[in-house]
């Protein structure tokens, strides 16, 4: 028993400072992803405390539900809206710091004062209740005394899932364009002003890096701006300046065809579909590939 209590105290005194530090990191880190990772660590440390509080079922559930799924959803959302978004912690509301300080410290003082002496007498311990196993004990409660609450909670989870789907759903405002329509449009564009028939290059194609942050390069080193993912643009990812990318690309092109120069590059560009270069359309083809291709989208 003495060993148990000692182990218990040891666990607590190791975990508690960690938990507080992770909590502060969660709240105070500028980068969202750091906050999320701190919270993950905090959840694990809390799970350890649950284990020492004779709650093995909750220990497992904490790790699986929180660290496993809830924090995954957080990270997934972050990925959607920008993983590296950082927040300026400078306060913008007048007097809000004071309100925060009064609120937090006042509440802390009162709560500590209130709970410090809340439990009197000896601890009962859960040995008796956990006699048939902790999970069995909880299950007996959940499926008997709290059966109704459990059903309500399950209904709530279903509703929440449906609600999330509805919120994420967007109405289609124009008729759907399938492969046939897209192809017809492409050919029309090619016929009318010689737009490129081939697929658009992905980011990094002919660029200095194959990172998705680097736009593709068209013939004559034209930057294909729309090869960058829109999400990256919205998020404000900083691409390297164009000049930095173009010069090495040109160099590379020159190295590939030392004597041919521009003509070789053109041939390379017109290659993919085996489409013969149009006599008068060379320049316009290059321009079209390099230019904004809004009309195709």
């Amino acid at each position: 028993m003495i060993a148990m209590i000692a182990l218990d105290a040891l666990t607590f005194w190791v975990s508690a400072p960690l938990i507080v530090i992770f909590a502060l990191l969660t709240v105070l880190s500028r980068k969202t992803v750091h906050a999320a990772l701190s919270l993950c660590a905090l959840m694990v440390a809390l799970g350890v405390l649950y284990a020492s509080l004779q709650a093995p079922f909750l220990f497992v559930a904490q790790i699986i539900v929180y660290t496993g799924s809830v924090m995954m959803i957080f990270l997934f959302t972050m990925m959607l809206i920008g993983i590296d978004s950082a927040e300026d912690l400078k306060e913008t509301l007048a007097g809000h710091r004071v309100v925060t300080a009064v609120g937090v410290f006042g509440l802390a003082g009162l709560l500590v004062f209130a709970v410090a002496g809340a439990v009197n007498g000896p601890e009962v311990g859960l040995e008796e209740a956990n006699a048939a196993g902790n999970a069995v004990g909880i299950a007996e409660l959940v499926f008997s005394r709290y059966a109704f609450a459990f059903e309500v909670a399950s209904a709530m989870v279903v509703v929440a899932a449906i609600g999330a789907m509805i919120l994420a759903h967007t109405e289609r405002l124009s008729p759907r364009r399938r492969q046939r329509e897209l192809l017809e449009e492409r050919l029309r564009d090619w016929a009318s002003d010689g737009a490129d028939l081939g697929p658009r290059p992905g980011p990094g194609v002919y660029a200095r890096h194959n990172s998705i942050e680097y736009p593709a390069l068209g013939p004559h080193d034209a930057v294909v701006a729309e090869s960058i993912s829109e999400t990256l643009v919205v998020r404000g990812s900083q691409s390297p300046p164009v000049s930095e990318m173009v010069a090495p690309a040109r160099l590379a092109a020159a190295q590939v065809a030392p004597g041919g120069g521009a003509a070789t590059a053109q041939t390379a560009q017109t290659g993919p579909l085996g489409r013969p270069p149009r006599a008068a359309g060379t320049a316009s083809t290059a321009r079209a590939i390099g230019a904004d291709r809004k009309d195709r989208r």
Partner: peptide
Amino acid sequence: MTSEYLILSAVLFCI
């Protein structure tokens, strides 16, 4: 030990 846990809980809540 109970009080310490509770105080930790209160502190976490306030954070």
